[in-house]
């Protein structure tokens, strides 16, 4: 039997309610299987992490899914700090972090405004003087190796809303269960545009540190890797 394919999605409800049904509820149910299929970070992320000062980093994981957090807390026999919260909220002291990483999360938010809000929260969570942020989202442009067929019938310039199936094996029966997760697949340039809008609304100048502005962000990296777009942002202040 051919694996279920990626299909177009239409956001038919209030976005928060829609995300609960097509993102959060699904991850709560597939958490152990989903987690067992995560092996190692992608190269750009591994490189970002390897540049942090070894032995002097305190890492805190944030997710909305309690079941994923329970796994993250002790995965690989390492004890970690995790916090249950929404990426649209700010449950911390502003600027408390030196680094923030958001991997494969923002593409689960159902509107442009909500995705921009999540970028703002990341920028607010790090130091205005030296904070660094790495963001990774799914791209419309897929790797040949991903084996995913993306419907190209109605390519939207602002990205594409799709359902991506998750096939959950049932250990007690010779059958599977399919969950359709909502994704917003980013168009080329859409992530940097989102970052520019978020920065502008926060009064941050986009560009290298200069004396014309009090505070800003520099786009250190902007690329595509294995079906994802990513950006690395550095905050600066005079």
């Amino acid at each position: 039997m051919a694996p279920p394919s990626v299909t177009s999605a239409t956001i038919s409800k209030e976005p928060g309610v829609y995300e609960d049904e097509f993102v959060h509820d699904i991850y709560e149910r597939i958490a152990p299987h989903f987690s067992s299929t995560r092996y190692k970070p992608w190269p750009v992320i591994a490189s970002f992490l390897s540049n942090l000062p070894a032995g002097r980093v305190w890492t805190i994981g944030l997710d909305k899914s309690l079941n994923l957090l329970k796994i993250a807390k002790n995965a690989g026999g390492v004890s970690r700090e995790v916090v249950r919260a929404n990426v649209l909220d700010q449950p911390w002291r502003e600027g408390a972090f030196d680094y923030a990483i958001s991997i494969a999360t923002i593409h689960h938010l159902a509107t442009h405004e909500r995705r921009k809000q999540a970028v703002k929260r990341l920028l607010q969570s790090v130091s205005p003087n030296h904070g660094r942020v790495l963001i990774y989202v799914w791209a419309v442009e897929q790797d040949d190796l991903s084996k995913r067929e993306i419907p190209v019938d109605e390519l939207q310039p602002g990205g594409k809303d799709v359902f991506v199936p998750w096939v959950l094996p049932d250990p007690n029966a010779d059958k599977t269960q399919v969950f359709n997760r909502y994704y917003h697949m980013f168009a080329k340039g859409e992530l940097t545009q989102l970052v520019s809008e978020a920065s502008e609304e926060m009064g941050l100048q986009v560009g290298t540190k200069n004396s014309d502005a009090q505070t800003g962000i520099e786009l250190k990296q902007d690329g595509w890797e294995r079906s994802n777009y990513y950006v690395e942002l550095h905050r600066w202040s005079i």
């Binding site: 916090v83 249950r84 919260a85 449950p91």
Partner: peptide
């Protein structure tokens, strides 16, 4: 609970 702090708010409490 179980060592996990819950910082989620209800929709009407969110800023």
């Amino acid at each position: 609970s179980n060592g996990i702090p819950n910082m989620l708010l209800a929709e009407h409490e969110v800023g």
